[in-house]
Design a protein around this nucleic acid. Structure first.
Length: 446
RNA sequence: CGGAGCGUGGCGCAGCCUGGUAGCGCACCUGUUUUGGGUACAGGGGGUCGCAGGUUCGAAUCCUGCCGCUCCGACCA
């Protein structure tokens, strides 16, 4: 992509309303534009990041055995009356009346809908277990939207729902999603730590929040430092091996990790040696919980057991705040010049910077690099604007492209260009062809 | 929902107190200049001053009502 033909409205100055780094940077980098309080348009750069994140979530959900569906944003009030939540939800629910005076709502979540669907499509224990999920826009009429996409009113969410015949089955489904979340966040270059969440009226130990550590996080977190160093790495997961999954879950839940909601200082101090006690802040990126028959009972969604009786589903729900992740990732990864994207979610994988636009040698070398990098399967942004070098560096660093290939007449006389890492600033001087090979290898496109 | 603010060109702001032809910086356009980390100079375009009423010879400015947005708190993915 040539920057001169792209749509990238970057801004030098920070809009007054943006308080935290991610909001500020997303506005300045031209990723989003506010439409009204807590509601945003996603501009090309932001949209690319959102789609990359969404793609990773899709892949990892399906790898873990979840099946994609798509439910509507507008729902009828009927099911919500059956579950009793139409009144419980209160003013956070956006209510709409259609032309026939029917009460509708813009869905804040989909438990009722999916339970109705599962009740219709799943009749026998032979059809279980199943996990269905979708990635869809939701609306919650927050009292106070803030922090840009981190706490909008309209937001994109992945929500999965598991259906099992008993609690043991539900635990296996829960574990699948638990491990899937570890993989999902790790692939995005993030450290998300599962923490014991408030279990509410259902009780039990099957509810965790996944927190991305960041200084500006909304929650205070308390954990055993060892947890922050755990990684799954590239190890293959056998999703059919319930014991193996349980072992991973056990490993990640063995040590103390809680948010301020459930934190107990005395327990923390008893369970974690002082030198390993880590107090930090985190952003909630995912939340999984088991809710049993909370919806299947009132909605009368049942399956037939081997002995011929009908029982309501045992279910859990598993959310990831997809549209808040770009913000969360920026909170965890930025510096004073701008965003520092992890490679897996960067809007472009490499930027080509022409230091002297209009110089025949520089123009030619950049065109050539742009073409060859693209042919190698890389997503390239070529800054071909008629701007000074400084302006180009400032823009590319602001929008956080992980790698820059810097091309100027001076280097070209020696037959070299520079390859610069956004994260470390490390600069490597090499021939254009070597730069292409290095980048292809870095991104696994060689 | 309690408390506090703010709405003046795309962005950041001044002007309002004390009513009298709407300004500055950035961005944008033209030209010259410069050219390896946001060049410099000159010229230029763009604003129903959030909306509606009122007071006044005259309202961005004073009064009333409404709308929008933001911040702190409580709440939440």
């Amino acid at each position: 992509m040539r920057l001169s033909r792209y749509f990238l409205p970057v801004q030098k100055e920070t809009p007054a309303e943006a308080e935290i780094a991610s909001h500020r940077l997303m506005l300045r980098a031209g990723m989003i534009r506010q439409a009204s309080a807590g509601i945003y348009s996603w501009l090309p750069l932001g949209y690319k990041v959102l789609k990359k994140i969404e793609a990773i979530v899709h892949e990892e959900q399906q790898a873990a055995g979840a099946i994609p569906v798509l439910m509507p944003t507008i729902q009828s009030a009927d099911l919500w009356r059956q579950s009793g939540r139409y009144d419980d939800y209160g003013a956070e629910m956006l209510r709409i009346t259609d032309r026939g005076e029917r009460e509708m709502l813009y869905g804040p979540t989909n438990e009722e809908q999916i339970t109705e669907i599962a009740g219709f499509g799943i009749r026998s224990y032979r059809d279980l277990p199943r996990i269905l999920y979708h990635i869809q826009w939701k609306f919650r009429d927050e009292v106070r939207p803030r922090f840009g996409v981190m706490r909008g009113r309209e937001f994109l969410m992945k929500d999965a729902y598991s259906f099992d015949i008993d609690r043991e089955g539900a635990r296996r489904s829960y574990n699948r999603m638990f491990v899937s979340y570890l993989r999902t966040f790790e692939r995005m270059g993030m450290k998300a730590i599962p923490m014991r969440a408030d279990s509410g009226p259902i009780g039990g130990d099957m509810t965790h929040e996944f927190l991305i550590l960041a200084e500006t996080g909304e929650s205070a977190v308390f954990l055993d430092r060892d947890l922050a160093d755990l990684t799954l790495g590239d190890a293959a997961i056998d999703w059919e091996d319930a014991d193996a999954l349980q072992a991973i879950v056990d490993r990640y839940t063995a040590s103390y990790a809680r948010t301020d909601d459930t934190h107990e200082a005395a327990v923390f101090e008893k369970e974690v040696p002082e030198e390993r006690r880590l107090t930090a802040r985190g952003i909630e990126a995912g939340h999984i919980f088991y809710f049993g028959t909370k919806y299947s009972k009132p909605l009368n969604a049942t399956v037939t057991t081997p002995d011929g009786t009908n029982v309501p589903f045992e279910s859990g729900s598993y959310g990831i705040g997809v549209s808040r992740l770009p913000g969360a990732i920026i909170e965890a990864s930025h510096d004073d010049r701008g965003i520092v994207w992890p490679e897996a979610v960067a809007p472009f994988e490499v930027a080509v910077i022409n230091l002297r636009q209009g110089d025949a040698a520089a123009d030619g070398a950049c065109e050539d690099l742009h073409g060859k990098l693209t042919a190698a399967g890389l997503d390239v942004l070529y800054d071909d604007r008629d701007e000074r070098a400084g302006a180009k560096f400032a823009t590319i660093d602001l929008i956080g492209i992980p790698w820059k290939v810097v091309v100027g007449p001076r280097g070209l006389k020696e037959g070299v260009v520079e390859l610069v890492s956004r994260r470390t600033g490390e600069t490597e001087t090499l021939t254009p062809d070597a730069a292409i090979n290095r980048l292809a290898a870095l991104y696994g496109r060689a």
